[in-house]
């Protein structure tokens, strides 16, 4: 049993869901903020990407932690779903909900969809498997260097994230999948964030309504920010030069 024995306890399982969820939400927020750098131009986002890669082991630790969080989050949710199904072996012929919202009832399915998207997204932009033709290197000038030493310019190359994103989103199908996917992410977060506070016991009449509203607001902000990128690309507001 060991570390997975928490799965025996309904509340501990929930707490694992909440804590891993919190980590993933944190990641999404940072990731979204980073993505918005695309509006600052090619150099800004490519430098940001380069900065992240320069972190080396730290980046890998973050990646491993996030991956573990994701695995625990998914695994726990599957175990919980199975046990919940067992707890209600016979379903109602008619069911009417008062408070359970579409977003809360579909957490598992939105979660599955998000997971599939993440796999695709990573294959596309991190592992460069699906559309390798989008991957091009960019030459750049590090600070303090001048064009005069052009001979050495070739050695200053980095992944052109900017171009990769623009080329990707110029494909309407990829844009469409992306927009649907981030909407689903937003759906998931809509319930997830306030649920996380409830599970961790942070529900007080004074501040919980604010948490609930913030949860919804956050999900909309994330959707808005992320959807804006493919739209801007399709409308040629950015990346028109490529």
């Amino acid at each position: 049993m060991g570390i997975l024995s928490y799965l025996q306890s309904s509340i501990l399982s929930k707490i694992v869901m909440a804590v891993t969820g919190a980590m993933l939400v944190g990641y999404i927020v940072i990731h979204t903020a980073g993505n918005l750098l695309i509006y600052s131009g090619q150099d800004a986002i490519n430098s940001y990407s380069q900065f992240l890669h320069s972190l080396g082991p730290v980046l890998w630790i973050a990646r491993i932690v996030l991956l573990l969080a994701l695995i625990l989050h998914i695994w726990t949710s599957i175990v919980l779903k199975v046990s919940s199904n067992e707890a209600k072996p016979e379903k109602y012929a008619v069911k009417n909900y008062f408070k359970a919202k579409l977003t809360s009832r579909t957490m598992l399915w939105t979660g599955v969809a998000v997971f599939l998207f993440v796999v695709y997204h990573v294959s596309h932009l991190t592992l460069h498997i699906t559309n390798p033709e989008h991957v091009v290197n960019q030459m750049y000038l590090p600070h303090g260097l001048h064009l005069s030493s052009a001979a050495s310019a070739l050695s200053y190359e980095r992944t052109d994230v900017y171009r990769m994103v623009i080329l990707g989103f110029q494909n309407p199908l990829i844009s469409l999948v992306y927009m649907i996917a981030v909407t689903i992410v937003g759906f998931h977060l809509n319930h997830a964030v306030q649920s996380m506070f409830q599970t961790l016991g942070l529900n007080h009449p004074k501040y919980f309504p604010t948490i609930q509203k913030s949860s919804v607001a956050l999900s909309f902000i994330i959707i808005f920010c992320l959807i804006s990128i493919p739209i801007s690309v399709l409308l040629k507001l950015i990346g028109g030069n490529l």
Binding site: S84, E86, A87, Y97, A100, R105, Q198, T199, L200
Partner: peptide
């Protein structure tokens, strides 16, 4: 053999005595 709470809050809506789900948060704590 009871299932796990997923914070749907249907229980609070169904409760004839309108007991608040805040008590669940308190218990989690």
């Amino acid at each position: 053999g009871f299932g796990t709470c997923r914070n749907f809050y249907e229980c609070e809506a169904a409760c004839p005595k309108e007991i608040s789900v805040r008590f669940i948060a308190r218990m989690n704590r």
